[in-house]
């Protein structure tokens, strides 16, 4: 399950394209500006590798499109960027507050044994972690079920590792250059 070298190369190609687009606008700006642009382009490159097949990549593209619409459009040209940017993500499922409260009341009425209580506690812990994972993975709160969430997390971690690999090799080379 390690990211492959073909993925690395593809990402590098995309990223170079993005940097090339970004470059004229950030030539003589502060570090934070440059860093932001670099990160943005890297993110878009990572998301565009999946070509909109995964939920997280779509969410990431939409999120970056709000920050720098021009760059996203430029980088995604060729893979239906309009459809990706404007694609409506699945709606968040929002429960009515009254219904939730009522169901909680009903739940509370039941008397629980110690074993059940422990199970409920474990379930609660897992639920909280799942919520945390949703917050971490882009578009996680739009994924309706846990299976989908875990699958997307798998894919997202793979892509992140690719991104980190390539960026690290580039940065190391650049820093080695400065030392000499």
């Amino acid at each position: 399950m390690q990211p492959t070298s073909s993925m690395n190369e593809e990402f590098l190609k995309k990223w170079q394209m993005g940097l090339q687009i970004v470059r004229p606008s950030i030539d003589n700006t502060s570090v934070s500006e440059r860093k932001k642009a670099i990160k943005l382009s890297a993110d878009i490159a990572m998301a565009s590798l999946r070509k909109g097949t995964t939920c997280w990549s779509r969410a990431l593209i939409q999120k970056t499109a709000t920050e720098d619409n021009f760059l996203v459009r430029q980088m995604l040209s060729g893979i239906k960027e309009e459809a990706l940017i404007n694609k409506r993500l699945p709606k968040k499922v929002v429960c009515h507050r009254k219904i939730v409260r009522r169901s909680k009341k009903i739940l509370r009425r039941k008397t629980k044994s110690a074993c059940e209580e422990a199970a409920a506690k474990a379930k609660k812990l897992v639920k909280r972690r799942t919520q945390g994972l949703r917050n971490v993975v882009p578009g996680g709160d739009l994924m309706s079920n846990d299976v989908l969430l875990l699958q997307e997390t798998l894919d997202y971690i793979m892509s992140l590792q690719t991104q980190v690999n390539v960026m690290r090799s580039i940065v190391d080379a650049a820093e080695a250059g400065t030392e000499q």
């Binding site: 570090v31 860093k35 960026m167 580039i170 940065v171």
Partner: peptide, 11 residues
């Protein structure tokens, strides 16, 4: 990723 992009921006 943040850190690396910062390093690249700085270097």
């Amino acid at each position: 990723v943040e850190m690396l992009s910062m390093r690249l921006a700085a270097v």
